[in-house]
Design a protein around this nucleic acid. Sequence first.
DNA 1: GTCTATAAGGGGATAGAC
DNA 2: GTCTATCCCCTTATAGAC
Lengths: 217, 217
Amino acid sequence: MSNLPDKSVNNKPRRQSRIREAHAAAILRAAEDLFSRNGYNGTALEAIADHANMSKQNLLYYFSSKELLYHRVLENVLDIWVDKMALLDQEGEDPAEMLRNYIRRKVELSRSNPNASKVFAIEIINGAPHLKDYLKERLLPVLEADVQLVRTCIEAGRMDPIDPYHLFFLIWSSTQTYADFSSQIELSLGKDELEANDFQTATDFLTHVIIKGIGLK
Amino acid sequence: MSNLPDKSVNNKPRRQSRIREAHAAAILRAAEDLFSRNGYNGTALEAIADHANMSKQNLLYYFSSKELLYHRVLENVLDIWVDKMALLDQEGEDPAEMLRNYIRRKVELSRSNPNASKVFAIEIINGAPHLKDYLKERLLPVLEADVQLVRTCIEAGRMDPIDPYHLFFLIWSSTQTYADFSSQIELSLGKDELEANDFQTATDFLTHVIIKGIGLK
DNA sequence: GTCTATAAGGGGATAGAC
DNA sequence: GTCTATCCCCTTATAGAC
């Protein structure tokens, strides 16, 4: 195993796969960016290729079809998403602190990955045709666990007897809006672009209203 | 003026304009429906025409281009929207009651016009290229008035000193999610379709959390 | 891995008969 | 107002040379 690198003097296989990885990653980034701005049908492969500094034909060498490329983009997005969706990460911690962290992580995700959020949003709005099964497998288990945790808090009298599912719908929508609806928010605030400051205000506002609103003690 | 109807014995002009109105309305409904499911570029004129029971060529007789048709759909949507966005409708009323009504109206709109909400959402996510100017003219004045009203409440010590803009971002996103993200919500609740019951739960939950969360007295 | 060339189909829009 | 026919561009995808 240790002698394998020596076998190919010019390191061809390794260098090639490095090129492949780099180009594939560049294509995925470009695709996410353009799909988020113009949707699936509104984005031509040639535009993605241009954005990734290569020819359309070369792009098709890396991803054999547009559908496949879109699938890969969606999977990337959802993987990032679900990882941040578990409340339970830190067992034994204060419920209020858990929710605060959850909200903070979600707003942070809207700031760092707005394009991913938008691709995801458009897919959901259109009825999640490519994503429904994957959502069932990946999202539902995490959601059920989180809902159960909230129920435990309610039964212990630590928060108001609200509907746990709707609590998560509220958190998802109110945090993701800073990515998905940024153009409307920018317009409303009279800014060309949202700044770190705005995301901090959003986080503070949402944690205040939600924690207080559900009567979390 | 009163003798004009008698001039045309067979009422041709009147009947023709009735057909025109009916067909135009059918096209607009079909277009809203299909744009909400597949976006602008994902929707073929032929599909809209089929949905409205006419040929593509005939559709183009009523709306001379796809762009124009899309504009009309967007205008319809926004007009419905902005009308419901004014908090101030009932001057002198209790602020808590005003906000409750506002939230109730917005959830009701998500229930009655989900397709309109989705068309609007996709347009905003894509940066509102067709809608920015119209939003500035129609939305901003209403928002500014609403924000001012909230500020007055805060200065009177009737609610917590929260950021008024973010309060509206919260209400917009959390109510519209029941239209825009309905596929995800249905999946989460294990239902094929949201029922009146679910919208009532949503309204009750949101009014509880938001009114309590901003410390409205 | 990257290029040129091209097949194959979809979709917006127009022309003109009825 | 509605129909048939047609134009033409755009886009996905493949074939094959280098």
